[in-house]
């Protein structure tokens, strides 16, 4: 039976996936294929390429200490705590929004992904791997499993509004989290017979100050509903909650890794029982 690991998105929370994989490998749980959306694609791709969790951790640390990949989601910051920054961002974005498709460019992301994946291709990975993105033109999820890893993962990490969509093969690709936060269904399509889904818990922002916040709130609820739909396709799911963790800052990665490890260790007896029931 082929065991697949489906890794969800969640910005800097994605480091928790490293802890998850470490705990699974220590327990001897085989990982026959991996996929992921957004941060899940980054970590999944790195693990699939090196098939060595210590090397994956070392690479991740190197990237974090070399490239500043933190981003600010301005709508999440309150007027009280960051008045200047928020107002500045709002003004800048208002001025530029008619011209630009995003707040930030891919410049830093590309540097980080280049350090992580170099010129390796999907076919070079030691564990079969696919990243998941969404095509804005057709509204379909797209499974990317060919070409350079850096290109496939970049498309999967293009958070709409924050980073520009990626053009590829006549498609306009954005973050897989738009429709498939934890792409369990897509992993099943890839041949996984037992899907372990890892969701990075993040509550929908419930406070609002203006109509724009309200629209984003409702959009967040849609995302949550769609995530649940995907999770229903998994055989086993683990949710990693990291209290008070800021998904847009990547410098606290050790906390996320430790939490991923701890939660997975706790879930292992149930997982092993489920795997036993499935004759794995």
């Amino acid at each position: 039976m082929r065991i697949g690991l489906s890794l969800g998105g969640g910005g800097a929370r994605g480091f928790a996936h490293i802890g998850v994989i470490k705990a699974l490998r220590e327990a001897g749980v085989p990982i026959d294929l991996v996929n992921g959306s957004s941060a899940g694609a980054v970590v999944g791709g790195a693990y699939a390429l090196y098939a060595d969790i210590e090397r994956t951790i070392a690479k991740a640390e190197e990237v974090v200490h070399t490239v500043d990949v933190s981003y600010f989601n301005m709508f999440r910051y309150s007027m009280e705590s960051r008045p200047f920054l928020r107002n500045w961002l709002v003004s800048a974005i208002c001025d530029l929004s008619a011209l630009r498709s995003s707040i930030l460019s891919h410049k830093n992301n590309l540097r980080a992904l280049e350090m992580l994946f170099g010129q390796y291709e999907f076919s070079d990975t030691q564990v079969p791997f696919s990243s998941v993105a969404v095509d804005l033109l057709t509204g379909e999820t797209v499974i990317i499993k060919e070409g350079k890893l850096i290109d496939g993962v970049l498309a999967s990490t293009s958070i709409p509004g924050i980073f520009p969509p990626v053009e590829r093969d006549g498609r306009l690709l954005v973050d897989g989290c738009v429709l498939a936060d934890v792409p369990a269904r897509e992993l099943r399509q890839e041949g996984a017979e037992f899907v372990i889904a890892i969701r990075l818990g993040a509550e929908v922002e419930t406070s609002y100050r203006n109509g724009f916040d309200l629209l984003n709130y409702v959009d967040g609820l849609k995302g949550r509903e769609l995530t649940q739909w995907e999770l229903d396709q998994a055989d086993f799911q683990i949710t990693i909650d990291i209290p008070d963790f800021d998904s847009s800052r990547f410098d606290n990665y050790e906390i996320a890794i430790a939490q991923g490890y701890k939660v997975t260790k706790y879930a292992l007896p149930d997982l092993e029982r489920k795997l036993g029931d499935s004759n794995v």
Partner: peptide, 24 residues
Amino acid sequence: QRPRSLIEVIAHVDELRGAAIKQK
């Protein structure tokens, strides 16, 4: 229409999600 500006992209994503939920 192909979404170009930031708001167009966000609104388009909003619509895609709505369509997916309706389908479900």
